Computed example of a mutant assay.
Amino acid sequence: MKHARIAWAGAVHEAVESDGELLLTRSPWAGKRLKFDEVVWLPPLAPVPQARTILALGLNYADHAKELAFKAPEEPLVFVKGEASLIGHKAFTRRPQDATHMHYECELAVVIGSTAKNVKKEHAYEYVGGYTVANDYAIRDYLENWYRPNFRVKNRDTCTPIGPWLVDAKDIHDQYGSPQNLSLQTTVNGKVTQSGHTRDMIFDVPTLIEYFSAFMTLQPGDLILTGTPDGVVNCNVGDVIVTSIEGVGELINTLGE
């Protein structure tokens, strides 16, 4: 099932996709149907009682590491993001006026479904609640060095669109076998600029869950952004970027000033 969070009629609602429409699921609006263009899309993540941890992978595709002229990492290269960077489907991301190279990063985002500590790879999928699409923009002008993305690169307000759907893990596993069997694509103004496949991750989803849970507790609602393949290009104000992942969704974002 595809879940969404939206703003409509002055309130935030939970909804699911139903026959090409949004079906509201909570009282007093349960059963109300809305068109996709009638609402404001929000990140499809339920509120959590604690601070949400967002873990993001750098250079997790060998072709992307080669594209940037770097050796593929021997262990996960990870940085932590703030939740204020997240925005929803069809929202605007601000491109700083002094930026000369700002590019998208189409990424599979893993949403943790239950508390995970010291999880072994063979049991990792039991702790996944679902999957969504993330576009984790990078502004290369602000990068201190390739191996330590700083706050100005990866923690900017509006710079991580996510959504539109949170797809139940069971649906992906049943239909595709695993999240490691999904194609990725990005278009800029309708032109395909990036194509890849999750099977090409250096560190797959079970490996990442085992790695992180060995030294920290993953809580329900935490996110793991799993990196991007090669094919990233500079984008400018007014460009419409669509990052899509097979079975998960098509995330639309526009760059603004």
Score class of each variant (00 low, 15 high):
residue 191 K to C: 10
residue 191 K to D: 13
residue 191 K to G: 01
residue 192 V to D: 10
residue 192 V to C: 11
residue 193 T to M: 12
residue 193 T to P: 01
residue 193 T to H: 06
residue 193 T to Q: 13
residue 194 Q to M: 08
residue 194 Q to G: 12
residue 195 S to P: 00
residue 196 G to Y: 11
residue 196 G to H: 06
residue 196 G to V: 14
residue 196 G to A: 04
residue 198 T to C: 09
residue 198 T to N: 04
residue 200 D to T: 08
residue 200 D to H: 14
residue 201 M to R: 06
residue 201 M to T: 12
residue 201 M to V: 08
residue 201 M to A: 11
residue 202 I to R: 09
residue 202 I to V: 14
residue 202 I to N: 07
residue 203 F to R: 08
residue 203 F to P: 08
residue 203 F to D: 11
residue 204 D to N: 15
residue 204 D to H: 13
residue 204 D to S: 12
residue 205 V to Y: 07
residue 205 V to G: 07
residue 205 V to S: 10
residue 206 P to G: 09
residue 207 T to S: 14
residue 207 T to Q: 12
residue 207 T to I: 08
residue 207 T to H: 14
residue 207 T to F: 14
residue 208 L to R: 04
residue 209 I to H: 07
residue 209 I to P: 01
residue 209 I to M: 09
residue 210 E to Y: 05
residue 210 E to T: 10
residue 212 F to E: 03
residue 212 F to L: 14
residue 212 F to M: 11
residue 212 F to W: 05
residue 213 S to N: 07
residue 213 S to G: 07
residue 214 A to Y: 01
residue 214 A to F: 04
residue 215 F to Y: 09
residue 215 F to K: 01
residue 216 M to A: 11
residue 216 M to Y: 01
residue 217 T to S: 07
residue 217 T to V: 13
residue 217 T to C: 05
residue 217 T to L: 07
residue 218 L to K: 00
residue 218 L to D: 03
residue 219 Q to E: 12
residue 219 Q to S: 07
residue 221 G to N: 02
residue 222 D to E: 05
residue 222 D to F: 02
residue 223 L to D: 04
residue 223 L to S: 06
residue 224 I to G: 02
residue 224 I to N: 02
residue 225 L to R: 00
residue 226 T to Y: 02
residue 226 T to M: 09
residue 226 T to R: 01
residue 227 G to H: 03
residue 227 G to I: 08
residue 227 G to E: 04
residue 228 T to I: 06
residue 228 T to E: 05
residue 228 T to L: 06
residue 228 T to Y: 04
residue 228 T to R: 01
residue 229 P to F: 11
residue 229 P to S: 12
